[in-house]
Amino acid sequence: MTVLTKSGSDAASGSESSGGRKVPIAIAMVAASLPMFMATLDNLVMTSALPVIEKELNASVGQLQWFMNAYTLCFATLMLSATTLGDRWGRRKMFVFGIGLFTAASIASALSTTPSLLIAARAFQGAGAAAIMPLSLTLLVAAVPEAKRAMAIGVWGGVSGLGIAMGPVVGGAVVDGFSWQGIFWINVPVAIVAVPLALYALRESTGRTQPLDLPGVALAGLGVFLAVWGIVHGNDEGWGSLGVVASLVGSAVALALFVLREMTTSHPVMPLRLFRSRSFSMANVIGLTFSIGIFGAVFLLSQYLQIVMGYSP
């Protein structure tokens, strides 16, 4: 088996764990990919359980949407900030912290007895996933020799896609065989394996230290939150109602201020110059349309198949 050998700090010719041990590349790939798989799985693992949770917690359709949105909003808003903090405090340290936060929030989700508690727990889950997802790739690249990085990144991307694809399937099987709480309890044994594995196989590293763009994070989060709030409540309250219109207008203003902030600050959380790259811009457009399609379709389809068609989870 190919192993990582010690050769200073450059991963191009090999790497080692923090204790100087020779670590097989396969082990390093599992250490970086397993927590990421857990985080991506939870994007959609809940969809198959929504009809069951609706009955047990007496949740409204709007609350069902927030069960999903609370996770993805925190995940998307805090991802770049978590990367910056990892560069400053240590990427492996932040990675392990994300696993711990994600696991604690999973336990809180499983123990939730009201929709509000579940929404709050899902938000913390998303915050933990925000530290796991980007740093897993950074740590993986540092742990693999340059000649094998393309292969490692391909495997990482495949595992990420597998997590999204398997989410509804795993969720349905767990709900049908155990209970809806089981979709969160399964994260605990994964974390018990993932944390010591990361500490063993992935070495600590830091990056260029720069100030955290807190105003940029706040404006991006507020803009997306208000947009989702207006869309979720549009059907119930009316698209012309004051609350919905105010949310959508507030979102447009916040996002415009976010772009202005990123154009003028010396340390942007989202460097807009990256969009000059056609490949980068197209990748984001494809990612956006994919997410709209898959998340929107699975959210509705899982409820249609169970409530209307009468299928089990």
Results as ranks from 00 to 15, higher is better:
113 T>I: 13
311 Y>R: 13
131 A>I: 01
213 D>A: 07
196 P>T: 05
261 R>M: 13
198 A>S: 15
8 G>I: 09
179 S>K: 08
178 F>V: 14
134 P>N: 09
137 L>F: 01
203 R>A: 15
10 D>M: 06
49 A>G: 09
155 V>L: 14
134 P>H: 07
122 R>Q: 00
117 L>S: 09
305 L>S: 02
297 A>G: 01
99 I>A: 02
9 S>R: 14
58 N>K: 15
212 L>S: 03
66 W>Y: 12
112 S>V: 00
2 T>D: 11
29 M>I: 06
12 A>F: 05
114 T>P: 08
265 T>E: 09
27 I>Q: 08
20 G>T: 03
302 S>L: 07
205 S>N: 13
57 L>R: 08
155 V>H: 13
135 L>I: 11
175 V>R: 10
12 A>M: 11
107 I>P: 00
30 V>D: 11
229 W>Y: 12
310 G>Q: 14
303 Q>P: 10
93 K>M: 07
263 M>T: 10
1 M>C: 06
167 G>N: 07
86 G>M: 05
8 G>K: 02
44 L>T: 15
275 F>L: 13
159 V>D: 15
68 M>Y: 06
228 V>M: 13
290 F>G: 06
137 L>H: 05
192 I>M: 04
247 S>P: 11
5 T>S: 13
183 I>S: 03
278 R>P: 01
108 A>H: 00
220 A>G: 07
127 A>N: 02
161 G>K: 12
54 E>H: 10
240 G>V: 10
190 V>G: 09
109 S>P: 02
131 A>P: 08
222 L>Y: 01
121 A>N: 00
264 T>L: 05
39 A>L: 04
224 V>L: 05
284 N>W: 04
254 A>T: 07
187 N>R: 08
243 G>Y: 07
203 R>D: 05
175 V>M: 11
17 S>Y: 04
101 L>N: 03
263 M>I: 10
